[in-house]
Amino acid sequence: MTGTVAVLVFPGTNSEDETLRAVRAVGLEGELVHWSQPEKLARFDAYILPGGFAYEDRIRAGAVAAHDALMDPVIEAAQAGKYVLGICNGAQILAEAGLVPGTGPLRRPTAAFAPNASGRFQSVHVHVRLAVDPGRVPILAGIEPGAVIPAWASHGDGRLAAPEAELARIERDGHLAFVYCDRDGNPVAAPNGSALSCAGLVNAEGNVLAVMPHPERDAWTFQHLDATRDAVRGNTEETLAPSGGIVFFEAFARAVLAEAIA
């Protein structure tokens, strides 16, 4: 086994290519699986739902895709303990599908990524910090405690919203996977007004993870906006090499490969 990953494409998905690129860069066998090919879905080791506007964000971001038949095999896989990662719109879909925080019945969300406090789409560079014990997120096997990951928060609906009791449960039971921070890991206000400064949610089993910002958009040195790129100026190979947000996918790959071998 080599670790095969399906990157799902719904009508309206728009980040499938860069997600696939990141998956392949960390040694996984990635493949795009299109909404007209549900029969292909069963055979993968893991699944990624990439960013975009699946089904035009009708009703609520992620809501229609969560009820799409394409999600049936993904939900089954998640329940069987396979790894499922959602980024941005993918995170919204996982919340709408009830897979994260996973505290209620399927497709009856207990928390959602609601419209940003500004009421608008916003694209800003951010850092996110791992906010749970790494042991709680087997999907990111071996990730360092408190790991800080650069990413782009490019979304209109990234504000975690849930009833008070549910927010308390998310915090208490370790569902709050990532929070917004500065580059040194210090807490900052969420750019979208997200409750708990939440940038990502994980289920109780730690095999389903939803993150709002895009680590795959800051996963190569040429994409960095700070001195780390300046430091390798003139070095073509280093400039084009994976770094930064790629650590997120490296951790994901370790998990998928370990599972595939076991």
């Binding site: 860069e18 789409f121 916003q122 694209s123 490019s154 996963a219 190569w220 994409q223």
Partner: peptide, 16 residues
Amino acid sequence: IYRRYDGVVRGCTAIP
């Protein structure tokens, strides 16, 4: 204005 636009989708942006 430009923060309302996605300047980094496709993952090919070196300078947004």
